[in-house]
């Protein structure tokens, strides 16, 4: 699958999308190999949905090139038929019920598994014969999740798929996703801001902020790349010397800093000697810290520009 002659499942080259007054995507370049579960993380409005729209030919980039299986997806039925993208605010025909939506999906997705869809309907307790526009927000999300999972499309995008879903329903979604992915490997792009819930499911993480990719790495490589050091402020400071500090918090003489870097045993011992406590940083915390650090950087350059004027 990954030999050099096969094009990447997804490739973006300097893709920019400008809305009237804002850049939703800012020269994004990205290459994603097939058959993995990707997390597309970022704040609301960071550009996640725009990115997925461009990749599915539903939206248009202002400049740059988006390729799926090495081809442009726009108006390309050959490529599109291998993709599934249900929007977070997906619209359905007014008179459709869930059963009819699934029937449609079975017409267009070659790998559609009706038995799997039926099983999911039961687990999500989705009323099949009620009109979709009369469903609750959670039930509406369930319709999208079921289409996304049962379509078994080679690339499936889930755009904040859990809105309105309760904790039990979300767990069902994650469990079925892992199981079905294991049985039918394919490319899954999961856009989410409930990072803690999905962190362990992801093989690779793409973090986007203000239309720019600020992290693009394997989840395993990221895990444990930062620690929170807490203790006496001066001890924390000396321990953190020479390290990238992502976040600083202090309370009186106590400080709690988040620093980048994987701790060796010797460093752990050093911390213990200084009376410092080391705590792991979850993916979610890391994403929050990285995003905030990026924001600060932008603010800093902005204010420097202000000064220059």
């Amino acid at each position: 699958m990954n030999n050099p002659t096969t094009p990447a499942a997804i490739e973006l080259r300097q893709v920019t999308k400008t809305y009237r007054d804002a850049k939703a995507l800012d020269e994004v370049s990205l290459r994603l190999e097939g058959n993995r579960i990707y997390g597309l993380l970022g704040r609301n409005g960071a550009g996640k949905t725009t990115l997925m729209s461009v990749l599915t030919g539903q939206g248009f980039q202002t400049s740059g090139e988006a390729l799926v299986f090495g081809q442009r997806p726009y108006e390309n039925d050959g490529v599109l038929s291998r993709i599934c993208f249900i929007r977070e605010s997906q619209k359905y025909p007014d008179d459709f019920n869930a059963r009819q939506a699934f029937k449609s999906a079975s017409l267009f997705f070659k790998q559609w598994d009706q038995a799997f869809a039926d099983q999911l309907v039961e687990e999500f307790q989705l009323p099949l014969n009620r009109r979709i526009k009369k469903l609750s927000r959670g039930q509406l999300s369930a319709v999208g999740v079921i289409i996304g999972l049962a379509s078994r499309a080679e690339i499936t995008f889930f755009d904040e798929p859990y809105l309105g879903l309760d904790a039990v329903a979300r767990q069902i979604f994650y469990d079925r996703l892992v199981e079905d992915f294991a049985a039918h490997p394919r490319t899954i792009i999961l856009s989410s801001h409930l990072i803690d819930e999905v962190a362990n499911l992801l093989e690779h993480v793409v973090l986007i902020d203000r239309g720019r990719i600020i992290m693009d790495d394997d989840a395993e490589a990221i895990r444990g790349t930062a620690v929170t050091v807490a203790g006496n402020a001066s001890a924390v400071q000396s321990f953190a010397a020479g390290r990238e500090v992502l976040h600083r918090e202090s309370l009186g003489s106590l400080a709690s800093w988040t620093v980048e870097g994987r701790m060796t045993n010797a460093e752990r011992a050093e911390a213990a000697e200084l009376g410092l406590e080391l705590a792991p940083v979850s993916l979610q915390q890391l994403v929050v810290r990285k995003t905030m650090a990026a924001t600060d950087a932008v603010v800093d350059t902005d204010s420097e520009l202000e000064v220059l004027k």
């Binding site: 994650y174 892992v178 992915f181 294991a182 362990n200 499911l201 093989e203 395993e220």
Partner: peptide, 18 residues
């Protein structure tokens, strides 16, 4: 199997395989 590990611990199957 790695898939059983993945399902049980709710982790990515590729990670379990690794």
């Amino acid at each position: 199997s790695t898939n059983e590990f993945a399902a049980f611990y709710r982790i990515n199957p590729a990670t379990a395989a690794k």
